[in-house]
Design a protein around this nucleic acid. Structure first.
Lengths: 184, 184
DNA sequence: AGCGTATGAGACATCAATGTCTCAAATGAA
DNA sequence: TTCATTTGAGACATTGATGTCTCATACGCT
């Protein structure tokens, strides 16, 4: 049981119960409180660590979707593909790091916040390009687009945890709703 | 300073800082801790009270949008109007009771949860009717529709609190994105 | 003024979680 | 086996918020 595995185990429980105590998280990881504190001196440190993992996973999603290449190429079809890929990757990301989406303490951490703002700008750049290429509406503020995606991920996560939809449908629902809305 | 006003003042601060302590909430209400506790014996009671207010406000939104009449009428135009009205009312609701959207403790309160499930069914019924009337896509699971709306409200709230969009644009952004998506 | 109620200030006890520490046992490599 | 490292169990102190209580004061009403 290394630091990494303990972190993952804690993450799993936090996804279910975001208020779990260190004792509960230690138990979930199959480790004593003492060992837990040896790896993560404070709960804050643990949550922050997971926040960084989440940021990295988000970055990986942007990478996997090849949004930068899509921006550079200036090709509509590639932008469309990238947007599809982004939906796929973000669904995976949200499923894995769901609790970070609504964890208030992360939003009051300057390091995390500034890092996530930097990354958001990268995503913004993609949306701007997608607007220019006619893939997404140009009359919507880019921050709203990003937050709409974010919000839909939150909704998706709720559906999944309530058993309202199947995991395999998640990506399609996000993609179709995001792109085309729910209007008939 | 009655119970109601203190509750509203507390709500305002909680919308900004969901982790505010009773002392901070009392200060925000311009009242001593003692008085605070006279009106709300525990923090849990306060939060629960706000949860009920939020439920009531949500119900008012459903009322104001006349979704039941739209269901009964079986009229497409009315359903469309109701959906528009729902967007308008929910934006107002989310702005006022925003913090309840992501407050974890409310989700583990059986009374609140069961009451909100009942109300959700009412909203579901409207979405089903709207699907039948061809106002919204019939191939999307209704719970997903409801959670997509919910999620977009969360995103909207973030935009507003970050100053990314203007309040007056909120309703339009929600309505257009919800109905037509972000696709060009 | 006189009375009843509500309030503020602050002391106080409680509580749950947190973080620290120690020691004995387990583990694992040489 | 031997030695070094890691772990678990549990005691312990700390902390921050919570909730209770008292009493003097302020306010509103008659």
């Amino acid at each position: 049981m290394g630091r990494a595995e303990i972190g993952v185990a804690a993450l799993r429980l936090l996804n279910i119960d975001p208020t779990a105590s260190m004792a509960q998280l230690a138990a979930a990881a199959g480790v004593s409180r003492a060992t837990m504190h040896r790896h993560f001196a404070t709960r804050e440190e643990l949550v922050k660590h997971l926040g960084w993992l989440s940021l990295r996973s988000w970055r990986d999603a942007l990478d996997a979707a090849r949004i930068d290449e899509a921006v550079d190429s200036g090709d509509t079809a590639r932008a469309r593909e990238a947007l599809d890929g982004l939906c796929r990757e973000l669904v995976r990301d949200a499923a894995e790091y769901g609790f970070t989406l609504t964890e208030h303490s992360l939003e009051s951490d300057d390091d995390i916040v500034s890092a996530s703002e930097i990354q958001a700008k990268r995503e913004y750049a993609f949306y701007v390009a997608a607007q220019d290429l006619g893939v997404i509406r140009a009359d919507l503020p880019v921050p709203w687009i990003a937050n709409a995606v974010f919000g839909l991920l939150v909704g998706l996560r709720r559906c999944l945890s309530h058993g309202d939809i199947a995991v395999r449908d998640a990506e399609r629902l996000l993609r179709e709703t995001l792109l085309g809305g729910i209007g008939a």
